[in-house]
């Protein structure tokens, strides 16, 4: 459960997380628009409403830790420090994209940031995360692996196999389940006999807790605690981060499965609105601060779009590159 009194430790802390969340929100809103302009194609899954999860979690992890994410991973990539230019260029399919235009929205990679990608197969990242953690353990590295996945992944065999294996071998992996209530249009209680995800993890003897995923400080504190325990040799952990997706599942979803009223109710508890309200109430942020952060986020997105627009296309002659590892030049 949430650490009692998890909150901003300073004005700077509060403004930093707000700035990171605004940056993701501005990026996602621009992506929505660019999809309409057909600059971005393919599948596009936006992270609006869930920003506190990626921002809080990444702050609590170390630079050497490995990250595995899903197809809804723009926020994770940005919060991890993958340059926004490279992410936007990837969505454009350009050579300067973080996966050289071969991945797109669902497959952002940056090995320098130990960001092992978006994975578009539900739950397929979990076994890989277990393996990264196995390597960390066998190589006696002081690092851990953090693996993000949705509530939908919990129904897959790979979830259960991976939790068992991680617990059996006491691997340094932190499972981060972003429970946004729906897998596409299917609510969790329509697919799971047991909807308490942390309880399932405990069934595998994994330390687990549910956290308010709308509260960036609660996420940061919980991930920090879990990561410290794992680094200390406690074996794997799981956090269920309760959150909500504000936009459609993807760009092809008329959202027949949920009421407007439900969405509106969650929007009132949204991670940005609650954060700004809190920072103002605690006297940690002025209107000016907010405007400055918001303007900085928009400016960064503008620059990323300009970068992506002007970035070169990968030559078709290089189509068949990277099917196999290339010898270092």
């Amino acid at each position: 459960m949430n650490a009692p009194g998890a909150g901003p430790t300073s004005r700077e802390h509060g403004l930093t997380v707000l700035g990171q969340m605004l940056r993701i929100r501005a990026f996602e809103d621009r992506c929505y628009q660019l999809y309409g302009e057909q600059k971005i194609r393919g599948f596009l899954h936006l992270y609006n409403g869930e920003e506190a999860v990626a921002v809080g979690a990444m702050r609590a992890l170390d630079a050497g830790d490995a990250i595995v994410a899903t197809y809804r991973e723009h926020g994770h990539a940005l919060a991890r420090g993958v340059p926004m230019d490279a992410v936007m260029a990837e969505l454009y399919g350009k050579q300067s994209g973080c996966s050289r235009g071969r991945g797109g929205s669902m497959h952002l990679f940056d090995v320098a940031k130990r960001f092992y990608g978006g994975n578009a197969i539900v739950a397929a990242g979990l076994p890989v995360a277990v393996g990264l953690a196995l390597a960390q353990k066998l190589r006696r590295e002081p690092t851990i692996t953090a693996c993000f996945f949705g509530d939908g992944a919990v129904a897959e065999g790979e979830f259960h196999e991976s939790l068992n294996l991680a617990a059996l071998w006491r691997l340094p992996v932190l499972f981060l389940c972003e429970n946004n209530r729906y897998a596409m249009g299917t609510a969790l209680d329509r697919t799971e006999a047991e909807t308490d995800i942390a309880a399932k993890a405990r069934g595998y003897r994994i330390e687990a807790a549910a956290v308010d995923g709308m509260d960036v400080f609660a996420v940061e504190a919980a991930v920090g605690r879990a990561a410290a325990a794992i680094r200390g040799g406690a074996g794997p952990g799981l956090l269920e981060l309760d959150t909500y997706r504000f936009r459609a599942h993807s760009m092809f979803d008329p959202q027949l499965y949920r009421d407007k009223a439900e969405v509106e109710a969650w929007q009132k508890k949204g991670p940005l609105i609650t954060l700004t309200t809190r920072l103002k109430a605690e006297g940690l942020m002025t209107e000016d601060d907010y405007r400055r952060l918001d303007a900085a986020a928009s400016a960064e997105v503008d620059a990323a779009v300009a970068f992506a627009e002007n970035a070169p296309w990968e030559p078709v002659a290089d189509l068949a590159r990277f099917v196999y590892a290339e010898p270092a030049a």
């Binding site: 092992y116 390597a135 066998l138």
Partner: peptide, 9 residues
């Protein structure tokens, strides 16, 4: 999958 991850690691 763990083999894949271990290779990446």
């Amino acid at each position: 999958g763990a083999g894949i991850g271990a290779a990446l690691g």
